[in-house]
Design a protein around this nucleic acid. Structure first.
Lengths: 386, 386
DNA sequence: GATTATTATTTCGATATCGAAATATGTCAA
DNA sequence: TTGACATATTTCGATATCGAAATAATAATC
């Protein structure tokens, strides 16, 4: 059945544009096939969208039998989308054109103990900053940490920014900039970034795993972002892990988040273990860890491996449950040159029973620091209608 | 986007009938609201379906303000669906009328070491047996153990029936009985039974947990059965569990399946632990265990509690990932009078972080032994089109 | 008892979509 | 070069759906 309330009329024109975004360079007939719609109907809408300047006819009629298809493509000039990503320390902004190519980006530091209102001001500033004056603004997406209610456009709670509670963020920005504003949790925004900009374009079921200060995940199931009925889907920070052998069980975040890894490294360095790491303000920094990993530092490799085993165990469990085609790992750890990824893959593969599960492709996000901002833009892209 | 290939045109008339099945006693306007369709359009289709004898106008115009709605209901006489469920020991069959009320059921034992062909013969016999001669047969559903390819209607593999490999089951039965045949894994069929007959009618996201010889689960997400891209979703038998303290990790099935529990009970009884249980052919039977649980036998309660803790841990993890509204537990264990359910609930609740998860309702299936057969019938109901 | 308010359903013209046939545009082989 | 063939797109009449207004049926109120 159609799932009642939630589902809104799936406007054909926006489906057409979305399909082109995913496949880029499709013919009318191919669109008709993908969307289960009559070719004549597709023709009507494509023509209209071309007239309106959103699409245009591409060049290369490739060589096969029969009349060559007219490839349709996005018109980059048709407008722009802006995405904002933030945490307690930084605000990232990016603008992309209608064909989803990056136009501008900007990163601004947030001074510690900044208030919610102060952060909002910075967000507005960054939006103005990355906005391309020559293009029509079509939508804004915001990726925020903590809990959100996307449908109402409210940021519900985030403990690391003072006063960040029940903010009607979407409404405020909508009034300010006069365009639709989409709001989402930032790990789910990352999953959207992968769908519209990254490796999730042609995969309909995948899990995006974000390992930063905390650990969270975003899911795309059947081609759509899955939020869960209470908006908690993917909040795996508290995933019970097997601790070495203690009676108390630890959570995934306590075992494998960046924070946890750095804490353990700091402890080990202080204890005088063999390593090339040095302390800075009495702590190990992320950059130091990444650099050491690059140089095969034994201590760092060991810590990364332990984290990978814990994460791998959890990922194996998730794979048993939802059977994803792909796992996309995002976060600084992506740059550790297989010190994390290899043991992760091994652990997963080792735990999956051959006949009742399929090993998912495990890859690293290629979108870099802007992944959150791009994801936010992706939200706006996804929500846009002609 | 619409998820391309998989999605077929969602025929309005079948959506209407399905919505009525879920809500029973709905007006035209309410249907229009639920399905996001114009009331006038709903009217056209309802009238047509009434003409064709599938639906009929109900009686009771309840009392509120305004013109009272005309409640639409299913016409039980419109036909029947048949569902078959099987494992290596038994074949269950059930027929239901168009309003989903049970007509007949039959259970046949399969002699051990029966061949696939023999089981097929029994299936055909049971179908003929539960078929109501006075009603038009509209569809058949088959719930089989092991791996399946529902789209192709093939039973792929099941180790406990000789020769049960790559059987084109749907095709064969379709030829034999001349109606559409739906095939599915039997735990997923149970999830469908809950959706169409049981407690999943008004819940769009839930997990159905089957604890029998093995352990498996079926998921309904966003109102639809979720199979996963490789058809492995929910195959959680191999879920890594924390074993007491050993180095090797055990699987959920090795810790909490009926088979595992009985094995452990048998061992304990032989070791002379205090219990009212007695051995039968040198083993503890399921019925003996259930009876002892009813009488608060301490050994049985302990074993059930340990299993519940293991399952609860896994369910908590699953809840973190997919955020279901409800967990439905099916299997003989459902009759153990909270000896299993209470510690299960406690374990889950204890592991869920208050701000990032919502405790799902944990209930027991009320459909009894026929749950699989009803689920199979539900598959046929779900697949049916006017 | 008549009137008003309220919700459900039907009516009916405008628009959207479909589906089959016609047309367009290429390759390939004789 | 010409004539099959294959595939893409458009044309056009039939059908489906929408949306607003009209109509129907009841409770509440005067």
């Amino acid at each position: 059945m159609r799932s009642s309330k939630k589902m809104m009329k799936p406007n054909i024109e926006s489906s057409v544009v979305q399909q082109i975004r995913l496949l880029q360079g499709v013919s009318r007939v191919e669109l008709a096939r993908q969307l289960s719609i009559a070719p004549s109907t597709v023709g009507i809408h494509v023509d209209r969208l071309v007239d309106q300047g959103y699409l245009r006819n591409g060049e290369r009629p490739e060589s096969t039998a029969g009349r060559p298809p007219t490839l349709i493509e996005l018109n980059p000039e048709a407008g722009q989308f802006i995405g904002i990503d933030l945490d307690s320390r930084q605000v990232y902004g990016a603008s992309v054109d209608f064909a989803q190519r990056l136009l501008r980006d900007r990163t601004v530091s947030v001074k510690s103990n900044e208030s919610a209102e102060g952060v909002l001001k910075i967000i507005e500033e960054v939006i103005n900053d990355v906005k391309d004056r020559s293009r029509n603004l079509l939508g804004i997406g915001i990726a925020v940490p903590g809990t959100v209610d996307g449908a109402k456009g409210m940021a519900l709670h985030y403990r690391y920014i003072r006063g960040w509670q029940n903010l009607p963020l979407a409404e405020r920005l909508q009034d300010r900039f006069g365009v639709p504003v989409s709001l989402e949790n930032n790990i789910r925004a990352m999953a959207m970034a992968e769908r519209w900009f990254g490796q999730g374009k042609t995969v309909d079921d995948y899990l995006c795993l974000g390992i930063r200060s905390g650990i969270g995940s975003g899911m795309v199931l059947g081609g759509e972002l899955f939020r869960g009925p209470h908006n908690f889907a993917g909040e795996i920070g508290a995933w019970p892990c097997r601790s070495a052998c203690g009676t108390e069980s630890k959570t995934l975040e306590e075992v494998a988040s960046l924070r946890a890894m750095l804490r353990q490294l700091t402890k080990s360095v202080r204890a005088g273990n063999a390593t090339s790491l040095t302390l800075r303000r009495n702590r190990v920094t992320i950059d130091a860890m990444l650099a050491a990993a690059e140089e095969n530092d034994p201590l760092v490799k060991k810590v990364l491996r332990e984290a990978a085993v814990a994460v791998g165990r959890a990922v194996a469990q998730m794979t048993l449950l939802i059977d994803p085609e792909m796992i996309i790992v995002a976060g600084p750890i992506a740059n550790t040159n297989d010190a994390f990824l290899a043991p992760l893959r091994d652990t997963i593969e080792h735990l999956l029973p051959p006949m009742h599960a399929q090993m998912p492709k495990v890859v690293v996000s290629e979108l870099g620091d802007l992944v959150g901002a791009l994801g936010a833009a992706a939200l706006a892209v996804h929500a846009w209608q002609p």
